[in-house]
């Protein structure tokens, strides 16, 4: 018996399917949103800036997207960085401390970013030089980092860890023309990172180290330095996100700032097509993954579903996205579909 229609065959170029699934997920989320509330996609201009759910999603996704970009680099080397949330806390505390010390705010910003780089250097030292498994090595800072943040708060008494800074708040919550500044900062960092890995050979080396460290060494790649660089990049990106988040609340709150951001970032990378087996870095995918996660959160909140449902619904949707990506599930679904036709 011939089937009436040929089975659906997706023979897109190799790069496409990777981005296809997160895009499909995003489209599905938006489709549900559109049904529930017809005004979901409305974008207005309020007080000289863009306003609406879509803008809000990108705005809120930006810090996680920035962290996920760094995470994508580390995961590309077959590593993982669990300490990014702790780095955010340390960076926030450092920023607050330097401002309380009366540093010019630009200098305070530079010192805060340097603190993130220092955290990355520490992680890299453990992983690349001392050869500790990445999950354990970065767990050390993950556990201790928030404590370090609290200790930094103590330097200036810690009684009132809030601050005012037009410069930093401008970066975080301000807008340039119609567009929120942090989105522009995020895009700027993305482009800069893309140029760093794709306009130089760094990306190739990172991926080579992730795919086969022994072969990379034999091909003359300094695997140790390359791995180290990955953690430094991740530390810097987490620091940038930390500045945005800290300036948003203009206070240093090491206990809860950026909580679970390491998990969101890892999830974003995986939704964006990255594999924890290493060997490939997809920056655009990581950004898209962060947007998917935030779209989901925002949608649940605007749908009128009790917020208590948030985490479980989120987990369910993420599971579906990952199943869509799994070659095995797709093969099984295809078998089922063709089996039913016969």
């Amino acid at each position: 018996m011939k089937s009436f229609s040929p089975p659906l065959k997706i023979s897109t170029p190799r790069a496409a399917p990777r981005l296809l699934w997160p895009l499909v997920a995003l489209a599905l989320i938006f489709a549900v949103d559109g049904i529930i509330s017809p005004h979901f996609f409305a974008i207005r201009i309020v007080e000289g800036r863009l306003f609406g759910n879509l803008v809000d999603i990108v705005y809120r996704a930006t810090p996680i997207a920035i962290v996920a970009l760094g995470m994508a680099i580390v995961i590309g080397t077959k590593g993982i960085d669990l300490s990014v949330g702790a780095i955010i806390a340390i960076v926030g505390a450092t920023l607050d401390w330097r401002i309380h010390m009366g540093d010019p705010h630009l200098l305070a910003l530079a010192i805060a970013l340097a603190a993130g780089v220092a955290c990355g250097l520490w992680n890299g030292l453990l992983v690349a030089v001392l050869d500790i498994q990445p999950i354990i090595a970065t767990l050390i800072l993950m556990v201790s980092g928030r404590g370090v943040g609290l200790m930094i708060n103590l330097i200036y008494g810690g009684s009132d860890p809030s601050f005012e800074s037009p410069l930093l708040q401008g970066l975080s919550t301000g807008h340039i023309g119609l567009i929120p500044t942090r989105i522009l900062v995020g895009i700027g960092l993305w482009i800069a990172l893309w140029a760093l890995v794709r306009r130089t050979a760094l990306g190739l080396f990172l991926e080579a180290v992730g795919a086969n460290p022994k072969a990379a060494e034999l091909a003359g790649v300094e695997a140790r330095a390359i791995k180290w660089a990955a953690y430094v990049i991740s530390g810097f990106m987490a620091a940038a996100a930390g500045v945005i988040l800290t300036a948003d609340t203009h206070t240093s709150d090491p206990v809860s700032i950026g909580l679970y951001s390491e998990l969101d970032a890892i999830l974003a990378v995986v939704i964006g097509g990255g594999s924890l087996n290493g060997g490939r870095i997809y920056l655009l995918g990581a950004v898209l993954g962060a947007v998917v996660i935030q779209a989901l959160t925002t949608s649940i909140l605007t749908s009128g579903l009790p917020p208590e449902y948030n985490l479980v619904v989120k987990a369910g949707v993420v599971l579906v996205v990952l199943l869509l990506q799994s070659a095995r599930t797709r093969a099984a679904v295809a078998r089922l579909a063709t089996g039913r036709k016969r």
Partner: peptide, 27 residues
């Protein structure tokens, strides 16, 4: 174990030794 980078393309597999000889900045 020591030769190929399975996930990387043929092009990248071929270019990498020459690339590492030139250094990461001179892509």
């Amino acid at each position: 174990a020591e030769g190929i980078f399975a996930e990387l393309s043929i092009r990248e597999n071929i270019a990498i030794a020459l690339q590492s000889k030139r250094g990461w900045l001179k892509a």
